[in-house]
Amino acid sequence: MKKIALFLAFLFFYTCTECRLYCQPKSYTFDSLQLAAEYDRLSDPQFNQGRELVSLLKIKRADRVLDIGCGTGRLAAYVAGITGKEGKVIGIDPSPFRIAIARRREKSNLLFKVAGTEELSLFEDNSFDVVYLNSVFHWIADRAQAMVEIYRILKPGGKLGIAMGAKHQDSLLVSILRQSAQSVLGYIPKEFDVNEYQREADEALELSRESGFKIKEIKTRHYVDLFRSGEECIRFYEASSGGSLLREFPDFQRKKILSQIEERLERLKTAKGIEIPHNILFLIDEKPK
């Protein structure tokens, strides 16, 4: 039932992501170019959140920047506009479908590679001014090793930015998920009670200190994302998760649960659409000089 817990974390963190990594290869077994393209169209929530992370990092012209879990590359392309031709932005993501779309955005100062945090050994010591993970941290399998590697590849004085689910969350989506599962299965899987978002936020702070970083800033912001329909909301989740949404259930149960989720979302629709509240934690670390 590990994938259920991962999906619960996805709801809390609103993953997936302008920038996302998958815990294991099987997590994007169901991904496709079509899903990646759909995510690219629907990824405004992560893109807008990412722009705030970039602002907090104070990225400058001529900076060398690494976007870990870059997805289809929207945020990396935005950052490349800030660094200018004197700088360099590299985006990595383990999904070849996301990278296929990202590569359409490549230019002289913007490059994309199919890779995850396990491949950070590709990069030399002290080679980046900024590294960031936008809605990505919770998908990394070995977070401790990833933080050590990020510290290694950052220059002294370089910054790491992490945007992730905050400890205190509105429970709307989780409530809908639990109600839908109860309706279809007749019970609520115990994994739905896992308080993943608080554990992951605490871990990010702890690993920052253990890796040698100096924590420069911690900020929480409340967001309200807007969807035109329950169907669009579900499509966003499906595309963001690389097609792995609720795949641990038999297909007939999965379809029923998704239908229940969509119906409950539709009941929340107003003249503006469906509002989904969530809180994001922004963590800015610095490698000591």
Rank of each mutant, 00 (worst) to 15 (best):
V130A: 05
N134I: 03
Q260H: 15
E203N: 02
D63Y: 02
V79G: 01
K2Q: 06
C19D: 14
I90S: 04
A144V: 14
H222C: 07
F12T: 00
K159A: 00
G116F: 14
P25N: 06
A181Q: 10
L173T: 03
S127R: 08
R228D: 13
K26H: 14
F236C: 12
R247F: 13
C23P: 07
I280N: 02
R235V: 10
P45Y: 02
E232S: 08
R209W: 13
G212P: 12
A141P: 07
F47K: 11
A163R: 14
A76G: 09
R254M: 10
G71N: 04
S180M: 06
I82S: 12
G273I: 09
L6T: 10
T83P: 11
I99G: 12
G165E: 00
Y14W: 09
D40G: 01
L268A: 07
K85N: 08
A5L: 11
K159P: 00
L177R: 05
H138R: 07
A100F: 08
D40V: 00
E119K: 11
R199D: 01
L172Q: 09
L75A: 03
S108D: 05
F30V: 01
W139R: 15
E275G: 13
L21G: 09
D285K: 03
F30R: 10
T270M: 09
P189D: 00
L75K: 09
D225V: 07
D31C: 04
L283W: 02
F128E: 05
E18I: 10
D170P: 15
N48E: 12
V174M: 09
S259R: 05
Y39K: 13
R267S: 12
V114D: 06
E18C: 08
